[in-house]
């Protein structure tokens, strides 16, 4: 039985509109790193939000360790595309708020004392190398740092699944590469199950065990799933020349730009 199982999920946002996602099924194993790639607007975020419990599928459903997902919770931590840190809290307080909730004894984890929670917050800030800026407010740090705090907040909940919605989409190339390496390192260390949305082919191949390629909406579905099969740990420089990496990359590019080209942009 799969660890996380999306079965036959369809969703429409109104009765008259066509389904956004149609009959999506996907099984993810414990500890697996799965990327979802597809053109903008095809329904990637919608799929992630259904797994998070933020949206309900019209038909079909999601099972996590054989429990049906019917509402959001800290066992499925989300890193949102635009960091979503609360601007009135410091970085530390942002993480602390999530930790206080996740370890209050009623949300799956055993209760932890104040001191334990404070130490755990610090541990996670150090994990993303943000210990030094912990007491700054989100407005005072760079986009890459915000995203790291968002990742620390999600990891600090000790989720069963980490859901990343284009976590590096808004960052410049150097910062993005740096954060990708950090996420790879964290995944190797913590063995968290990850479902990541991206539109960056290199990122998908570099980070993932499997790449789920989605067809264009409406009624988007899974077009193809690629087993990346590159050994870990992975090194972006070494991989750049690696035939297996190049082949995987070509396969995804071919899917996205030859067989399922982006739909013509429509006048708004």
């Amino acid at each position: 039985m799969a660890f996380l199982s999306v079965s036959d999920v369809s969703i429409a946002f109104s009765a008259r509109a066509p389904d956004v996602l149609s009959h999506v099924s996907l099984d993810i194993a414990r500890g697996e790193y799965v990327s979802i790639i597809g053109h903008s607007g095809c329904g990637k975020s919608t799929l992630l939000n259904i797994v998070a419990g933020l949206l309900r599928a019209t038909t079909g459903g999601v099972l996590l360790e054989d429990h049906e997902v019917d509402s959001p919770g800290p066992d499925r931590a989300v890193v949102f595309q635009n960091h979503s840190l609360l601007p009135w809290l410091t970085c530390r307080e942002n993480v602390r708020l999530a930790v206080d909730q996740a370890f209050d004894g009623a949300n799956g984890h055993p209760r932890r004392s104040r001191a334990e929670r404070a130490a755990w917050v610090q541990h996670n800030l150090d994990l993303v190398r943000m210990g030094h800026a912990a007491d700054k407010r989100p407005a005072e740090i760079s986009g890459g740092m915000k995203q790291r705090i968002g990742i620390a907040r999600a990891l600090a909940m000790q989720p069963k699944v980490l859901l990343l919605d284009e976590p590096f989409g808004a960052l410049d190339a150097l910062t993005r590469a740096h954060l990708q390496d950090q996420v790879m390192e964290l995944h190797a260390r913590l063995r968290t199950t990850v479902m990541m949305i991206t539109h960056d082919v290199d990122e998908a191949v570099l980070l993932s065990d499997r790449i789920v390629m989605m067809t264009n909406g409406p009624r988007a579905g899974i077009g193809e799933i690629l087993d990346v099969g590159l050994a870990r740990p992975r090194n972006r420089l070494a991989l750049a020349q690696d035939p297996a990496f190049i082949a995987a990359r070509a396969r995804v590019l071919e899917f996205l730009y030859s067989r399922h080209r982006a739909p013509e942009p429509q006048a708004a």
Binding site: P72, A77, F80, N82, L86, W88, L97, N107, M157
Partner: peptide, 27 residues
């Protein structure tokens, strides 16, 4: 919506939601 979603994921509800999210966001 982002803040609401954060609150939902960490299950912040009732008085805590009011004090930690709603009031500061509306301030």
């Amino acid at each position: 919506t982002d803040y609401r979603n954060v609150a939902r994921v960490i299950r912040l509800r009732g008085a805590k939601y009011f004090l930690r999210i709603l009031l500061p966001a509306a301030a």
